[in-house]
């Protein structure tokens, strides 16, 4: 093999950096939507590399549902400081109060849907014209069809039938006033690619990605942590288990997996061995209807 050869992770990295630079050059007010999960942490790492030795030329924006893992929030604040980035936090809680929205009910009161309201308000408040998101096309059927530069109308809506052709590595980010573009620099990465890259680059992650002890209940075959947001019913058996998280979303809609993987190598081995996909294993909300994501995206979701 020639020394002028990039392996697959280096190729994916080069592509993502190229996309980050296009965003910085084409838009006046871009923002990186930061969830605290491994995908957005990887994006921050890529953005840092894209603009080094300068600082990342856009803020990290966190739409805080109020249902986050404390470990993820702590990590978020640490990371923003570490890379010297501006951190903008907007709370779903405030949107609920201001707009008099109805709080979700039930045992797993997910504010996932409500995030869209806060996100759209935040976009308006800061006049963001490009929002960089960490969605990957391998995650889900609707995402598999979305472009890297995905134009949203004034209501944040995605129209799958009217997508711009995206040719070669040329990204057309021209928009009308009021519209914005969602940009997905890690579209072509799979879950395993992300993990392998985290290992290769030695990227720090919140501790909940590794095995730890937690009190959980079992819900339809999934393990959900007991927290201030999820309380056991009389029928529930509270178990203490060694678990880790494969994705980090809200405590109300993210399930844990039983694991003893204490470091990256062990996590990666478990992922290679597992036969259940990431969203299926850990997202309580995607199982509702098969077209759940398609609907949410059409309505302005990430």
């Amino acid at each position: 093999m020639s020394k002028y050869h990039l392996d697959y992770l280096e190729q994916l990295e080069a592509e993502s950096i190229h996309i980050f630079r296009e965003v910085a050059a084409q838009f006046e007010r871009p923002a990186l939507l930061f969830s605290g999960g491994k995908d957005s942490i990887t994006m921050v790492h890529l953005a840092k590399k894209a603009f080094a030795p300068g600082k990342i030329p856009f803020p990290l924006v966190h739409i805080d549902t109020g249902h986050n893992f404390p470990e993820a929030l702590e990590f978020r604040d640490w990371l923003a400081k570490e890379v010297n980035a501006t951190l903008v936090v907007r709370k779903v809680e405030d949107t609920i109060k201001e707009k008099n929205l109805t709080e979700p009910k039930g045992k797993f009161p997910s504010r996932n849907w409500l995030q869209t309201y806060t996100l759209l308000d935040t976009i308006e408040e800061f006049k963001f014209d490009a929002c960089i998101g960490g969605a990957r096309r391998d995650e889900e059927k609707a995402r598999a069809k979305e472009r890297i530069f995905s134009v949203r109308d004034e209501f944040g809506q995605w129209n799958p039938k009217l997508q711009r052709p995206e040719l070669w590595n040329i990204y057309n980010g021209r928009i009308h006033k009021g519209e914005n573009v969602r940009v997905f620099p890690i579209s072509n990465w799979t879950e395993l690619d992300i993990w392998n890259y985290i290992r290769k680059e030695n990227i720090d992650l919140p501790s909940i990605y590794f095995a730890h002890e937690r009190q959980v209940i079992e819900h339809e075959g999934q393990l959900v942590a007991i927290s201030e947001f999820v309380q056991p019913d009389a029928n529930d058996v509270v178990l203490t288990k060694q678990v880790r998280y494969r994705t980090v979303g809200d405590m109300t809609c993210t399930a844990a997996v039983e694991s003893t993987a204490a470091n990256l190598d062990e996590v990666i081995n478990e992922i290679i061995a597992t036969r259940i996909s990431e969203r299926g294993e850990t997202r309580i909300d995607d199982k509702v209807t098969e077209a759940a994501m398609e609907d949410r995206k059409k309505n302005g979701y990430f």
Binding site: R137, D138, K141, A144, K145, P160, K161, Q163, S187, N188, T190, L192
Partner: peptide, 10 residues
Amino acid sequence: TIDVAYRYFT
């Protein structure tokens, strides 16, 4: 099928 979809395998 109405649009290009991307699939991944290794």
